[in-house]
């Protein structure tokens, strides 16, 4: 069931997830389109998230934006594309390549005492190699050490890839097309911004064969949402994910269709990274337990990093 409507206010609106925004020319959403998008959100009872560009909007836009409850991505939620010296926002996103995440692990660790919540987005998951497993594990361990100290001193900073799984008892993923939908400045719906970027840059469309062009929209504000095969966006139609307990995994369907060509099937890279994080959270949980913290949601020990490798046992 849809819960969130994200409105890209401009073609250059900030990228806040895996995919970079390759669009460099400003195209501000027309005021009338914005009005229709807000109306759609209100009628469908959706929480609205505005995705901001890096410039200030005119007053008439601000007035319309403030006419409804919302979150401002790129304003309230600050997005960083490199590790900052300091984070003051309560809620921030840090987008990094895997190599940068590993290289800057100590710089990130320094930030942890400052944050309420930091979402880590790895921007090149598709390039991850099994040879990087050990390095990624080490980086997670570095961050765990600081998180443990913070917990011991009474702080509870949230670092998405390491602390979310402490609480989660079921999958909590990006929900593109299922719980979230995007409106782009052209007034069309997309499953997530990455599909809009692909369309705008002419990347070949494997999502909807009825459009041999790069068209990636799933409806528009005039005619409503028209998601083809919406059942395939649900967890119960994802054979690997539905038996997986790396609940913090993003389950990025854009990466799925890019790497496995099927929107409900995660790649090896996504599964391995999610399981390294899951297992690191398990380590953190055990250390918290040893330090006297109560554990209600025990994470079990498993012997695999990719559920695909043990699918015969768990199917």
């Amino acid at each position: 069931m849809l819960q969130y409507l994200s409105i890209l206010l401009d073609d250059t609106s900030v990228a806040y997830c895996h995919a970079d925004n390759p669009l460099t020319e400003r195209y501000l959403i027309p005021l009338e389109t914005l009005r229709k998008a807000i109306l759609f959100g209100m009628k469908e009872n959706l929480m609205i998230q505005y995705v901001y560009p890096d410039y200030e909007l005119q007053e008439e836009y601000n007035a319309l934006i403030e006419s409804i409850d919302h979150v401002k991505i790129g304003r309230d939620v600050v997005v960083y594309n490199e590790v900052p010296k300091k984070i003051t926002a309560e809620n921030a996103v840090l987008r990094l390549s895997i190599a940068d995440f590993i290289a800057k692990q100590y710089d990130i660790a320094v930030l942890l005492p400052q944050i309420a919540r930091l979402n880590i987005c790895l921007t090149d998951i598709e390039t991850f190699k099994d040879e990087q497993i050990e390095e990624y594990q080490k980086a997670l361990t570095t961050l765990n050490t600081v998180l443990l100290d913070q917990y011991k001193s009474g702080n509870r900073p949230q670092l998405s890839i390491l602390t979310d799984r402490l609480q989660l008892k079921e999958m909590h993923n990006c929900g593109a097309g299922d719980t979230n939908i995007i409106v782009a400045p052209n007034g069309k719906f997309y499953l997530c911004p990455a599909f809009y970027y692909d369309e705008q840059t002419g990347i070949n469309n494997r999502l909807n064969h009825h459009n041999p062009t790069s068209e990636r929209s799933v409806g528009d504000l005039e005619n409503g949402l028209q998601i083809p095969n919406p059942q395939l966006l649900k967890l119960d139609r994802a054979p690997l994910c539905r038996i997986c307990d790396a609940y913090q995994c993003n389950r990025c369907i854009w990466l799925n269709q890019k790497l496995t060509w099927d929107i409900n099937t995660p790649s090896h890279q996504q599964c391995v990274i999610a399981h390294l994080e899951r297992n690191a959270t398990r380590d953190l949980q055990r250390k918290l337990f040893d330090a006297g913290f109560a554990i209600e949601n025990e994470i079990k020990e498993i012997t695999y990093l990719d559920p695909f490798d043990v699918r015969k046992n768990i199917n």
Partner: peptide
């Protein structure tokens, strides 16, 4: 014959 690029329809 599928509506999208999938083997799951």
């Amino acid at each position: 014959a599928a509506k999208t690029h999938t083997v799951f329809e």
